[in-house]
Write a protein that binds this DNA or RNA. Structure first.
Lengths: 215, 215
DNA sequence: CTCTCTATCTAGGCATTGACAAGATAGAGT
DNA sequence: ACTCTATCTTGTCAATGCCTAGATAGAGAG
């Protein structure tokens, strides 16, 4: 399980290099996000030549997309775990939102990468290369999957009569918008450096979720 | 009032150059945000040498900060205008949130610049140069001023009994978090390219603001 | 009216970056 | 043993941010 050829350079890394590059990139996006990501620096960190990454990622953005995808997977697992630990829908939704915010606070560089404007813009203008397409479509799928968690909670809650009527998508969107917005205000505005940010988040998110409760 | 020396290069532009640089930068941040901003390109657009901006902005980030500040002023005015047009506090708050979202949709590059991670990180680590400090402190003040609009609405609404009790800051934060989060989901996730986004926003923000109403 | 003085702008250079092209290397398949 | 191909390296290019030194213009002083 441990092909420890870190000292020797056996020249053919195979697909392992791809994973190593992403792992190194995951480090370098902290704390600034995509702006702190340099393909050459990543290559240097892994110990390969500056052009090696190009074989797995046609673009700097493609590498960033892979990092973002890894981020969405990690965040998804955090949220899923938090949700599984609760029973009542309203508690599940609160826990999901707080897990969302907490993830952003703890890995702000990764979080910023996940929602980097560059990736969004590229997603709209279809890329050309084969590899690139793959990187970016999996990214979009992961986003949708993550939002699905919230929608499912809302739907279940509505079935139980815990949440008010209305399009489940809209209710879920309200929850994620609040979580997303609060997270960004925390990390992009230095908001609440001194106060306990998660406590603050619990308050604010709680207020928002009150709007989702059945009357 | 119109020293139209655009063809000739009288060499001494004085403080006018500063304004021209910001104006040009305001164009270049669209649509990508700070990532699309190049000091050299800005200088080229204005017609000065590549090092000229350095006299007004010690840094690329300082220029970005000036752009961001201009953005906050513009957004502030949009929101203020929308608020003035309503009477009831709940309507004011909804209008403010929607104006917020609309601004982000119409000027996404500028909006992205206003909340660029690089600026946030620099705000935390005190800059050195004199000019730089000024650029960044005015930025922080403008942010606070903008949030103040929301707090004021909430406070008035609470006095009238329209909004529920609680710390005005928390209620206002809930509103801005929702607006901010929704705006970012719109522009950073290509959300709702086809549907009418402002109508969607009205729905979602409406749900959130229900949580602020008096019971 | 000329001379100096200073803010303002230009010119050139440097290290770094992302992308591209051409070549070297290793290992699999025949 | 030989080829063939994916994998990686080396070298190059234009562009960028920032730095330093120098040119220029206009104001103020004699």
């Amino acid at each position: 399980m441990a092909p420890r050829d870190s000292q020797k350079k056996p020249y053919h890394w195979g697909e392992q290099l791809r994973g190593d590059l992403v792992a190194e990139a995951l480090r370098q996006v902290e704390p600034l996000g995509i702006a702190g990501l340099s393909t050459r620096e990543v290559a240097r960190g892994v110990g390969v030549s500056h052009a090696a990454p190009a074989h797995y990622f046609p673009d700097r953005l493609a590498l960033a997309a892979a990092v973002a995808a890894a981020g969405f997977e990690q965040m998804y697992e955090s949220i899923e775990a938090a949700v599984r630990a609760r029973r009542k829908p309203s508690e599940k939704l609160l826990a999901a939102c707080l897990a969302y915010v907490e993830f952003a606070l703890e890995r702000r560089g990764l979080y910023r990468t996940m929602y980097a404007p560059e990736l969004a813009e590229r997603l709209n203008t279809l890329p050309r290369s084969r590899k690139g397409v793959d990187d970016f479509t999996t990214l979009a799928q992961l986003k949708a999957k993550g939002f699905g968690v919230f929608v499912d909670i809302v739907r279940d809650g509505q079935a139980e009569g815990a949440f008010r009527a209305g399009k489940a998508d809209d209710l879920a969107r309200a929850a994620t918008a609040a979580a997303h917005g609060l997270a960004r205000q925390f990390i992009d505005e230095g908001l609440g450096v001194r106060i306990d940010r998660m406590a603050h988040a619990r308050q604010v998110i709680g207020i928002v979720l009150d709007g989702l409760e059945a009357r």
